[in-house]
Amino acid sequence: MANWHRLANPTLFLEWSRRVRPWTGVATAALLATGVYLSLFVAPRDYQQGDAVRIMFVHVPSAWMALFAYAVMAVASAAGLIWKSPLAHLTAKAAAPIGASFTLLALATGALWGQPMWGTWWVWDARLTSVLILFFLYLGYIALWQAIDDHARAAKSAAILALVGVVNIPIIKFSVDWWNTLHQPASVLRMDGPSIHSSLLTPLLVMGAAFAGYFVVVLSIRLEREVLARQVRTLRRVQSRG
């Protein structure tokens, strides 16, 4: 237990992540299979929405992961700035495209769900709009990484941007909530317990866990690539000097 900080060493991290990844992968696949089965065959049809309600089992976990990935990115960025850890900066970099993809998936499934339910692909509703802005924040973060050649400076600049984004997200959310909403209010995470029926909640949570597992697996693959790329860069620099 006391040796967690040793994982900040990129080489040890690579070893550890390669050992853990197959198990996480298997668990994710099992969860995903269960989740898909539960949501397609076990969960009841909605008396109003029919089978369209099943889009929820992809849409809602995507939206959760869109926020979760940004949180991972922000925490990793803060850790990178505070402890000057390259691995933390690389974690943030690796998490960004995954988060952006989940955000896009949430928007796309939302549009597909909105078309039959609200009769329109897109409405300028508070939640949709804030997720769209979150997507732009991800794009800006990724673009900043790509725009700065010097790797160490890119890492720190992007980290500052991620932290500025985290401070701003609640304000953006608040401001966008100002022009009220078509979207239903939060129904799973509530003080008085979930308002959604358990026949729908169980598949939703299983899918959520599967998405989280997928995030971890892809993050570890991307992170491994980033670590290796960094080692290649260092070797090249040493070579060109010597």
Partner: peptide
């Protein structure tokens, strides 16, 4: 974006979402 050549577009991409409020 101070060190980025032609950073103007990138600057807008970074800042405009933050200016929504």
């Amino acid at each position: 974006t101070v060190s980025v050549r032609r950073g103007g577009v990138l600057l807008s991409l970074l800042v405009l979402p933050l200016c929504v409020p």
